[in-house]
Computed example of a mutant assay.
Amino acid sequence: MKIYKIETVQHISTSIEACWAFFSSPRNLQKITPEDMGFQITDYDGKSVYAGQVIQYKVSPLLGLKLSWMTVITSVKENHYFIDEQRFGPYALWHHKHFFEPTESGVKMTDVVHYALPLGFLGRIMNTLVVKNKLKQIFDYRVVKVDEIFNSKK
Rank of each mutant, 00 (worst) to 15 (best):
A18Q: 13
A18R: 13
C19R: 06
C19T: 04
A21Y: 09
F22R: 03
F22P: 05
F22M: 05
F23T: 02
S24E: 12
S24G: 06
S25K: 14
R27I: 12
N28T: 13
Q30R: 14
Q30M: 03
Q30E: 15
I32R: 11
I32W: 11
P34A: 14
P34D: 12
M37D: 04
M37Y: 14
M37T: 03
G38S: 07
G38A: 10
G38K: 10
F39T: 04
F39I: 08
Y44S: 08
D45K: 06
K47W: 02
S48W: 04
Y50Q: 08
Y50A: 08
A51C: 05
G52R: 05
Q53S: 01
V54P: 00
V54I: 15
V54R: 15
I55Y: 13
Q56P: 00
Y57W: 09
K58E: 15
K58S: 10
V59N: 05
V59I: 15
V59W: 06
V59R: 02
S60R: 15
P61S: 07
P61Q: 07
L62N: 01
L62I: 13
L63D: 11
G64N: 05
G64P: 09
G64L: 07
S68L: 08
M70T: 14
T71K: 07
T71P: 06
V72W: 02
V72M: 12
T74N: 08
S75T: 03
K77W: 01
K77Y: 04
N79E: 13
H80Q: 14
H80C: 11
Y81K: 05
I83G: 02
E85T: 00
F88R: 12
G89P: 04
P90Q: 07
P90F: 03
A92E: 11
W94K: 04
H95S: 06
H96W: 03
K97S: 05
H98P: 01
F99T: 01
F99R: 05
E101R: 08
P102F: 08
T103Y: 12
E104Q: 15
E104K: 14
E104T: 06
S105Q: 15
G106S: 13
K108F: 06
M109Y: 13
T110A: 11
D111L: 12
V112D: 08
V113D: 11
V113M: 15
V113T: 08
L117R: 05
P118C: 10
P118E: 09
L119G: 01
L119S: 10
G120Q: 09
G120E: 10
G120M: 08
F121P: 00
F121R: 04
L122A: 14
L122R: 01
L122T: 01
L122P: 00
G123H: 03
R124Q: 14
I125G: 01
I125E: 06
M126Y: 11
N127L: 07
N127T: 02
N127V: 03
T128S: 10
T128E: 08
T128R: 10
L129C: 07
V130R: 07
V130I: 15
V131L: 15
K132E: 15
K132T: 12
N133P: 00
L135C: 01
L135K: 03
K136T: 09
Q137A: 12
Q137L: 10
Q137G: 09
Q137W: 09
I138R: 09
F139E: 13
F139S: 11
F139I: 02
Y141E: 13
Y141P: 03
Y141G: 03
Y141I: 07
R142L: 12
